[in-house]
Design a protein around this nucleic acid. Structure first.
Lengths: 254, 254
DNA sequence: CGGCCATTTGAACGCGCTCAAGCGCGGTGG
DNA sequence: CCACCGCGCTTGAGCGCGTTCAAATGGCCG
């Protein structure tokens, strides 16, 4: 067995995440795409940038494992996290000009990603039907819904509401196939990073989390872990309805 | 001439905006799509909702004339404008479930729109190559860039920066084909609505606009009209570089 | 044990909000 | 014609939420 073949075997469970891209493709096209993704597999350590702002960026970036933040920052260094991505999510790091990234794509944990560059995409397009874009559109619709809900609260709601919402959002996104909220989960973000996500200072994140915790809504005693003890109460503070939110954020693949 | 034919003639300059969708299609497909858009043409008055939150929504909504706001609101009635759309922009009002809108789509001026519903889209897809999606993706990339830039400032920047940025953004989007910023333009928003766009109260919008005006950066003496008198200065306060921003927001159609 | 980083808590400031009153302008009707 | 609205803009006063600065505490690893 060649070294590459061994590597591909070892990583096969990761590339399986790409099933969402290859679905509906004919077998030949699907295997060509899988091979491309296996070739472009990349492991990135916690805290490193997967793509830096202003760098050349792939057109499509696939998260296979770990947590990824899409960040933008002001000249004074203040960071805002535009969106968070988990395993199986699709990141489109380029804005209009389709070459250079307008964002920092940051590894919040050790991460495994794969990617498709613009030229590779053009090569595929020649031979493969663009069924793939349908999956990309679904993911983009979910991302739009997430960003809109967060923007609403960032612009109009209190710190308590913003944080409660962030927790509810992550809780729902992590719930997976079975439709029960995952009310206890690892949250590999520092309070600083939670603040970057919700537009708050780390100090105020701390205060507000403790307040939620004192109200008996969450339990943060274990480090880097959140237990939601009263999801209805938390959803109330987040100004969210769980069912509605779920249908927005977890829309099925079309 | 039949009445419908007359109407289609009268509206032809509007449907021409759809050239961006039909580009690269073969003539037959293009004319079928144009006919569909002409059939679905709709005029909406200032202040009316084009699509209300929770209603069935078209998959693609095309703005042919006027200004449109994509709004979300909290239970207490507070409104946040997620994005603004001008003539020739494409709105994707559905989130995940692809049927019901998660937004209010609101006419800020008298507006002409057209739309393609999910079923119409499926019908087209059968016969027409999905070249159209390429245009949609381009527009979506621009929309993502806009939302990201605004989210960054909504989360991290002062009222002055947010407002300066909003003006710069609109100024660039209105500049059109020639690459000179349109430094004087009609702004058909009340200060209340500017506040909904930038996450500020109408009172503070007023104060901040006056401050910008006192600094000699803008002139708002004429009602519903903005003249940018020092675009470099304004860009400085907005924490933006005009060239970079332009390439993000006005990316060419691929 | 010491060193480092994240979290926690306190104190004080200030930006942007709310409440409230006044102003300017266009439209309507006596 | 002017009186009278109604709506949006303007300005003032005061408050409160979230910030910054600072110091103390806690947890993890060398």
């Amino acid at each position: 067995m060649s070294q590459i073949a061994v590597m591909e075997k070892k990583n096969s469970h990761l590339v399986d995440q790409s099933a969402l891209l290859t679905r509906d493709m004919d077998a030949a096209a699907a295997s060509r795409l899988s091979a491309l993704l296996a070739k472009n597999l990349r492991r990135v350590q916690v805290g490193a940038d997967i793509v830096a702002e202003g760098e050349d960026a792939p057109t499509i970036l696939l998260v296979l494992e770990g947590w990824v933040a899409l960040n933008k920052s002001l000249q004074n260094g203040q960071i805002q996290t535009i969106d968070l991505f988990l395993a199986s999510d699709i990141i489109l790091p380029t804005s209009g000009d389709a070459l250079v990234s307008a964002y920092d794509v940051h590894a919040l944990t050790d991460v495994v990603v794969s990617s498709i560059s613009r030229v590779e995409l053009d090569d595929l397009e020649i031979s493969d039907p663009p069924k793939m874009w349908s999956a990309v559109r679904t993911h983009e619709a979910r991302a739009r819904a997430r960003v809109a809900e967060r923007t609403l609260r960032l612009g109009q709601a209190s710190a308590e509401t913003r944080l409660a919402y962030a927790l509810i959002e992550l809780c729902l996104r992590l719930e997976g196939a079975q439709h029960i909220p995952k009310d206890a989960f690892d949250l590999p973000l520092t309070q600083q990073q939670i603040g970057e996500y919700s537009g708050l200072s780390s100090v105020h994140v701390c205060r507000t989390l403790r307040r939620l915790s004192r109200q008996g809504l969450i339990d943060t005693s274990e480090n880097n872990r959140v237990v939601i003890t009263d999801i209805q109460g938390l959803a109330g503070i987040a100004d969210a309805e769980l069912d509605v939110l779920r249908s927005e954020l977890l829309a099925p693949d079309v």
